[in-house]
Amino acid sequence: MTALSVAQWEALEHVLYYLKGSPGRDVLYTNHSHNKIECFCDADHAGSKATKRSTIGYCVFVGGNLVSWRNKKQDVVSKSSAEAEYGAMSQSVQEIVWIHQLMKEVGLATSLPAKLWCDNKVALHIASNSVFHEHAKHIEIDYHFVRDKIKENFISTGHVRSNDQLGDLLTKALNGTQVDYLCNELGLINIYAPT
């Protein structure tokens, strides 16, 4: 705070412009008549200029409503975009398992398999193909948790176009139009907008 660089100052300005432009953004929950769990996960490969670590992000929906979201810098440097995305998938599946267990404990049934959306075809292929080892040796063993949950039919994976990837909002710097589109898809509304 005492000696901001030009880049840090510009980043701060972006945050302040966003906050000033959206004081009334809120999540709207509606009844979609189902309890399906869906998750959009994303990663920016080597997004940190200083450490080259990737940032992962995910958004989890239950019954069509946003209930959980997170972004986090990965603990290790990913050697490829597929590894970064696969790490995001692993974190997302852990959150899906937790939400499913929570709903089960409070007596709410969810339909399985939960849907995990990713925009990286290589990461999806690694997750679904158990013999795709040659190119995936550098991926840590715990990421294969995703594969196990697919085999158990707990989750199913699907490809989403990069423009429709809701996780982008948590991992990348986007322009205003894309931010508005993704916020709308997340179910965020402006409570001050005229009706």
Rank of each mutant, 00 (worst) to 15 (best):
M1V: 04
A3F: 13
A3N: 15
S5M: 06
S5I: 03
S5H: 07
Q8T: 03
L12W: 02
L12G: 08
L12F: 10
V15F: 10
Y17H: 14
Y17T: 09
G21C: 02
G24R: 04
D26K: 13
V27Y: 09
L28V: 10
T30V: 11
T30S: 13
T30C: 12
N31E: 12
H32L: 05
H32Q: 08
S33D: 14
I37Q: 01
C39Q: 01
C41S: 15
A43P: 02
H45T: 02
A46Y: 07
S48K: 09
K49C: 07
K52F: 12
R53Y: 05
T55C: 03
F61L: 14
V62G: 01
G64I: 04
G64M: 06
G64Y: 03
L66Y: 09
L66P: 04
W69H: 07
R70A: 12
N71C: 13
N71K: 05
N71F: 03
Q74D: 09
D75E: 14
V77Q: 03
S78C: 10
E83T: 05
E83R: 04
E83D: 11
Y86R: 08
M89E: 02
M89Y: 01
Q91T: 08
Q91N: 13
S92Q: 07
V93W: 02
I96S: 01
I96A: 05
V97K: 06
W98V: 10
H100P: 00
L102N: 08
M103V: 06
K104P: 02
E105V: 06
V106M: 14
V106N: 07
G107Y: 04
A109N: 14
S111E: 14
L112R: 10
L112M: 15
K115G: 01
K115R: 14
L116H: 05
L116W: 04
L116C: 09
C118Y: 07
H125W: 03
H125F: 08
N129M: 07
N129A: 08
N129E: 05
V131A: 12
V131K: 15
F132D: 10
H133G: 03
H133P: 02
E134N: 11
A136D: 11
H138E: 02
E140Q: 11
E140Y: 08
D142E: 13
D142R: 15
Y143R: 10
F145Y: 15
V146T: 11
R147E: 03
I150K: 09
K151V: 12
I155A: 02
S156M: 13
S156H: 10
V160M: 10
S162D: 07
S162E: 06
D164T: 01
D168M: 00
L169C: 04
K172E: 04
K172G: 03
Q178P: 05
Q178I: 09
D180V: 06
C183P: 01
C183S: 10
N184F: 11
E185Y: 00
L188A: 08
I189V: 15
Y192W: 11
A193L: 02
A193W: 01
P194E: 10
T195G: 06
